[in-house]
Structures are given as structure tokens and as C-alpha cells.
Computed example of a mutant assay.
Amino acid sequence: MVVYNELVAVTAGAGLLGFAWFLAQLTGGKRVESEGWAAFFGVTGVLLLALGLHTTVTWPFGGEGFEYANVAFGQPAAGFGALLVFAAVYLWRHRTLFAGEVDEANATALRALKPVGIFVGALGLGMAVLAITFVRFQLGAAPPEEPISGRFGHLPILEALFLGGLWGIVALGALLFAIALLTDRHQLLRWAVWAWVVGGAVFLLFGAMNFYTHIGMYYNIEHGTMYKW
């Protein structure tokens, strides 16, 4: 089974943290360096879009009831990646605007994001349902061959609560973002920023840890060992 959810998680975490920082600059009246942000969103967006689409249409996660991961990981990654690519294109095309008067540029960007809020809210709704699904069906338990996470595989509710909570906090940020823009209640954006800071940091750390735990799992399976840490 060839998977790459480690890179997806790390990139999604970086993308969430980056967009939270970018949004904080917009709402805080700070000058936005549009070319730098365009490059950042372009790199993270292309990676997530490509890997998310590939997961969505080819289902590389397969066997032993693990097929749900194609839905839970691939589809949100593809949607988020497309949004980041949009942000990259917008910031690159409007770099002259962002080089000018700060308040005008930031207000214009927030107005441009308003229609995008519809799709962000839709993704947030989907993530919220996925969060419930993780807990309801106790999905995500690691096999005993996987170091660290596998030590708790006999208690599937633990990882289900962790994954459900992680998807849920990201969903909360997306729904707050959509409500804030579509109702012109921009004060709610600060809570979206905090939700994505927390969710992004956890995604980033979890994805980084998985480079170790997944390689350890493959090593244990290949060599018949049972390294737990």
C-alpha cells in the first residue's frame, strides 16, 4: 500500500498556520507581502491539490476496512489545496494593489474572499461531519505494528476522539470564517484564526510524527520486529 498522508498532514498543517497568519495580517491592518504569500500558497496548494485529487480518485488506502481514509484525508486535502491555489493566483495578480495603501488593499482582499467563504463553509460542514464519523464508528486506530500509536490500538476510541477533535477544530474555523464574511461580522475572524492555529499546529506535529511511526510500522512488518517506541 503506497500512501503519503504524512506529507499531506504536514502540508495541511503548514497551510492552515500560514493562512491563519495571513488572515491575522489582513484583519490587523498589517502590510501583506503578496509575492511571498503567493509563493507559499502556491507550493502548499499544488501539493495538497495534487495529492488530494490522487487519493480521491485512486483510493491508495485500501484493505482491512481502511478505505475510509481515502474520503477523510483525500477529499478535504483536494478542496483546501484548490483554495490555496486560488489565494496564490489572487495575491500574485494583485501585487501592485498590495504594494499601495495598506487599508485599501486589505479591505479589497477581504471583499474578494467573501464569495470564497461559501466553499470554505461547505468544506467546514464536511469536516464537521467527518469529525462525528470518526467518533461514531471509532475510526483511526493504529495497528499493533505501528510504534507509539500502536500502543493504544486496543483503545480505538482514543484515536477516534483525537482525529475527530482535530477535524472538528479545523471545521469550526472554516464555519466561523464563512459566517464572518457572509454576514460582515469580521470580529469572528479572530476566532477562526485561533482555531486554525491550533488545528494547523496539531496537523503539522502529527504529520511529522507519522514519518517516524509509519516507517517504524513498515520496518516491523518487514522484519518481524515489534518496536513500540
Score class of each variant (00 low, 15 high):
residue 4 Y to G: 03
residue 76 P to V: 10
residue 36 G to C: 14
residue 117 G to D: 04
residue 179 I to W: 05
residue 168 G to Y: 07
residue 16 L to E: 00
residue 158 L to E: 11
residue 102 V to Q: 00
residue 69 A to I: 14
residue 152 F to K: 10
residue 149 S to L: 13
residue 146 E to W: 14
residue 167 W to D: 10
residue 187 Q to D: 03
residue 118 I to K: 06
residue 38 A to Y: 08
residue 226 M to V: 05
residue 73 F to Q: 04
residue 55 T to L: 06
residue 195 A to F: 00
residue 197 V to H: 05
residue 22 F to M: 15
residue 98 F to D: 00
residue 179 I to E: 09
residue 151 R to Y: 10
residue 88 A to L: 07
residue 14 A to W: 13
residue 219 Y to S: 05
residue 4 Y to F: 06
residue 71 V to F: 13
residue 75 Q to E: 02
residue 225 T to M: 09
residue 15 G to M: 05
residue 127 M to Q: 13
residue 227 Y to W: 15
residue 127 M to Y: 11
residue 76 P to M: 08
residue 14 A to T: 10
residue 178 A to W: 09
residue 160 A to W: 00
residue 11 T to C: 00
residue 176 L to A: 10
residue 168 G to S: 12
residue 91 L to R: 01
residue 222 E to Q: 15
residue 186 H to V: 12
residue 190 R to F: 00
residue 27 T to F: 01
residue 165 G to N: 15
residue 149 S to F: 15
residue 103 D to L: 13
residue 137 F to V: 03
residue 94 H to G: 11
residue 131 A to S: 05
residue 86 F to T: 12
residue 165 G to A: 09
residue 107 A to P: 01
residue 37 W to D: 09
residue 120 V to Y: 01
residue 123 L to R: 14
residue 213 T to G: 11
residue 135 V to P: 02
residue 208 A to D: 03
residue 189 L to R: 00
residue 36 G to V: 09
residue 205 L to W: 05
residue 178 A to V: 12
residue 209 M to S: 15
